[in-house]
Nucleic acid binder design. Structure first.
Lengths: 188, 188
DNA sequence: AGTAGCATGTAATTCGTTACATGATTTC
DNA sequence: GAAATCATGTAACGAATTACATGCTACT
């Protein structure tokens, strides 16, 4: 995965390993972590594979290796971006991938989001059924936190579905965000 | 982590490796995965450490190893559950931990959630600032998906904060869940 | 002069997955 | 009698973290 995230970052412009890490951190840091210890070896591997290459640049006595993506790299990245349901099991992986959807034709992006939305809806339905089972039960106070993770799972999926519905139409995503007052008001 | 999740499951009652996996899958499967290949070796290690032990039970010609937690295991689990901000960086890890908060005195659970809420709020503030920066920018259509991950990050944090506010007071978590009509209505 | 940030890498280790390998029991 | 599920384990591998190790540059 990280391999393709790196390629994705390099599709924008050449970067040093250090800068790639910063880009990942800033861009999808909430959903995906990349440490130096993983980036540098991967850059080496990508170079061996001919998917990336580097030129050394000097600033005074200071050297840096600026990596850029090769045509083969672009191809590999496009294959990953377009293809494959493999990674789409994890929400984090899907969101990380969607970070690069601007590079996809609108219809394809829409289709991919639609597919994921369907999965999320099916999953949500299963969780709602499970919730119903437990709602009937007694002793709920001693199971409060066990149940609370189920509720949170439902919330998470609902957010995901709401995001899908808005994102596939490229709607204004501000409507997904609760005004702070409402956040407080609904709960407190 | 998985090590402690296993111990946590065993605090309830003895289980076979196979059943532990099912419990994890059913309970926090959305936030944490456990494969057989990780569970069985860990059960071996926990036995070596004296934190768990097993007795063999037979059903006809079929043998199964039922694992139970030892007093040392209970102690180790309690230390993990009560202590440590280490794991609390990842939301998934925090939620997985909170699955066992029923075993904590109310005030301590409340305190732990409160601490996590503060972190989430600080993080949310940073993301909101970043959002403001981008909101002013032009060319927003060609950056739509890059921005959309930021929006989703904000949603995720808002859900987390709402969950914290309700959970620490052991309030009814049904209020966190959107009625299906509203989900559709707000977006479509 | 010192701190923070830029910059690169290796090595050991941890953690976990996947595939392999086997076989019993239950349900249809 | 076939398929699904229960049940346990190993071995090879891969992905990523952490700590280690180094040194420059810019700012204050």
């Amino acid at each position: 995965m990280l391999e393709y995230i790196i390629l994705g970052v390099l599709t924008e412009k050449p970067y040093t390993g250090y800068d790639i890490r910063k880009c990942v951190e800033e861009g999808i840091g909430m959903f995906y972590k990349a440490s130096w210890g993983s980036i540098y070896p991967l850059l080496g591997r990508l170079s061996e594979q001919g998917r990336a290459a580097c030129r050394e640049e000097c600033q005074g006595s200071r050297k840096k290796k600026v990596y850029y993506i090769t045509p083969e790299g672009r191809e590999a990245f496009a294959r990953w971006l377009e293809g494959g349901e493999e990674t789409e099991d994890s929400m984090e992986a899907f969101i990380a991938k969607s970070f690069f959807f601007d590079q996809l034709p609108d219809e394809l992006a829409e289709h991919k989001i639609q597919e994921y939305e369907k999965k999320a809806e099916a999953y949500l339905e299963r969780l709602m059924e499970k919730k119903m089972e437990f709602d009937g039960l007694v002793h709920k106070d001693s199971w409060y936190y066990k149940l609370s993770t189920l509720y949170f799972g439902i919330c998470k999926l609902q957010s995901m579905i709401a995001w899908c519905r808005a994102a596939k139409e490229k709607a204004d995503l501000n409507q997904l965000i609760l005004p702070l007052e409402e956040l407080g008001c609904k709960i407190l």
